[in-house]
Nucleic acid binder design. Structure first.
Lengths: 325, 325
DNA sequence: CTGAAAGCGCTAACAC
DNA sequence: GTGTTAGCGCTTTCAG
């Protein structure tokens, strides 16, 4: 491959002039510019971006840390990040961690070794304090509430949104309420569990652990949940389900077993995915696209030094009323 | 940030010795190695990978070109790619093109400018001959049949698989058969359409354009398809649907409108996604995970010069019989 | 085993 | 406006 030197020679100019043309600098005369352009054309030249990155100390790449990509929650986030990245001439490094700490550390290390300019954490396993030391190498933005930290965040108040969901059910006469979560150790999950406990306590209902389901991510997990419900002597009359996919599975399987929604079982989903509309599912929209694009902006502004300090932005959830409650 | 020179000074060795330690070369005495390691530790040093990439002419990154990520077809592919990449210490650059030619060209250019070592094309819009010239800059692997080309490929015989699906329907007495595709101009789509025409011709059925649906990707698109079907005076009795999501939407909406599956409408899906099992959907598994991991291997082997020539690998589809036919 | 030195390809003072 | 030149941080001959 040709390099800048050969272009300079062919165009009979210096390498700096070539560089100026390449970077659209002013102060290059028309004919020299033209000569350079012709040489570039003629030699089919392209910049070697590794060299550019070395000298600029910048890659124009943002790392996206997530456990797995094949879930609408994460693709929703990524769509938002991606749209904003495209506008700002940034690329995305997709880093699937499987919630494995070693993989997560590797992503952080990529920041330190300058393979990426910043990181957006869609979801993580490792504790925050292991992440924080890396914030000095570039902006890190989490899509969950991290409190005050060198790590920025865009988040929803999952405590309030979950309580809002439960209250909505209580207002409609439900007292036997269960819920389904993804992980049981994430920040978001813990806040939700707390909201659940507080809400049930306020109406003097006992917490029944058998009505709480973890590791529910996909439609087939919802099917499993419903089947477990069928085994119980006392069933909850309502379920808060932190993924529309899982809620859809529950509703599907309920239908197969002659359980009516919402009469026999009310369901509230989360995320407001297209599948929620198809299933006429009442759901809590938590603005994934918006969250992703804001996360990118925060990272970007920090890379560009438009802003120096970490930022914490709270987004509003919305309750979408349909007919599953 | 500390650099290799400072490490050398602190460890009282030359930079080449530091480099040897960094790269696990043999022939470094125990105490020098230890001194270097201590200096690295002490200065919290990390390699600057931009410099490494410049000198090696290699990034250890593969670009993944796809129109959008929020569809199980693509996430399935990406999971396969990703698993193999992880094993081989490669990173993935996620390049969403929205089927926009300019975006697609940009991905190709990243290969030329050495931002990535190779490209896996999950799906594309632009014609192959615009892509081929870029194959000299690094391996390009397409997840569709590209014939004999400098571009490698992993693919299914979509003509045969589609015909197999239609014949399966015909054997069960169907003659009024429609289908749903994603795009209408992709290679895969064209082969499928041809299979459809040939099969119907062989049983002397006319092609009815109103039974052919394009731009069907998601569950809500399936809902639309079924609604359109309801408007027709003569409806197909069976549908071949190139996405389990769309098929699920069709079945959902059929149920709401009192149409029984398969009695009133038989449905075959594609991809064998989890949702197919939940809906008891007969489907054609086209091995997305396997396709993704093989695509990575082909690219990888070529980067590593284990193999020089492009490769064309055909995968086997499988018909998964459930109860929607 | 170790070090000196020559780049990899590019950018950006700095001088003219 | 343009060219010269000193790096960016690293790897790798080549001598010893």
């Amino acid at each position: 491959m040709a390099n800048i030197k050969e272009i300079a020679k062919l165009a009979k100019v210096s390498v700096s002039t070539v560089s100026r043309v390449l970077n659209d600098h002013a102060y290059v005369s028309g004919d020299k510019r033209k000569a350079v352009l012709e040489a570039i054309e003629h030699l089919n030249y392209s910049r070697n971006m590794s060299a550019v990155q070395l000298i600029n100390g910048k890659t124009n790449v943002i790392g996206v840390m997530l456990p797995f990509i094949n879930h609408p929650y994460f693709t929703g986030l990524v769509e938002g990040i991606s749209a904003e990245a495209l506008k700002n001439n940034y690329q995305l490094m997709l880093c699937q961690t499987d919630y494995n700490e070693l993989n997560e550390i590797n992503v952080l290390k990529m920041l330190k070794t300058k393979q990426i300019d910043g990181i957006i954490i869609c979801s993580k396993h490792m504790p925050l304090d292991q992440i924080e030391p890396y914030a000095r190498y570039g902006p890190i933005v989490a899509c969950e509430d991290v409190g005050s930290s060198p790590v920025s965040s865009v988040f929803l108040d999952h405590y309030t949104s979950f309580r809002r969901g439960i209250n909505y059910l209580i207002e409609r006469g439900h007292r036997h309420i269960g819920f389904c979560l993804g992980r049981n150790n994430g920040v978001n999950s813990q806040m939700r569990r707390r909201a659940y406990v507080d809400a049930l306590t306020s109406i003097q209902e006992a917490i029944r652990e058998e009505w709480i389901f973890y590791q529910s991510y996909r439609i087939e997990d919802g099917v499993d949940v419903l089947r477990k419900l069928l085994q119980m002597e006392t069933r909850p009359t309502a379920l808060l389900v932190t993924s529309d996919q899982v809620a859809a599975g529950i509703i599907m399987e309920a239908g197969k077993n002659g359980l009516r929604v919402p009469e026999d079982l009310a369901v509230i989903g989360f995320d407001n995915q297209p599948i929620a509309e198809v299933f006429d599912l009442t759901t809590i929209d938590n603005q994934l696209y918006e969250m992703g694009s804001q996360a990118f902006r925060i990272a970007y502004d920090q890379i560009m030094k438009i802003r120096e300090l970490p930022e914490y932005r709270e987004l509003e959830y919305r309750l979408i009323e349909r007919s599953s409650v």
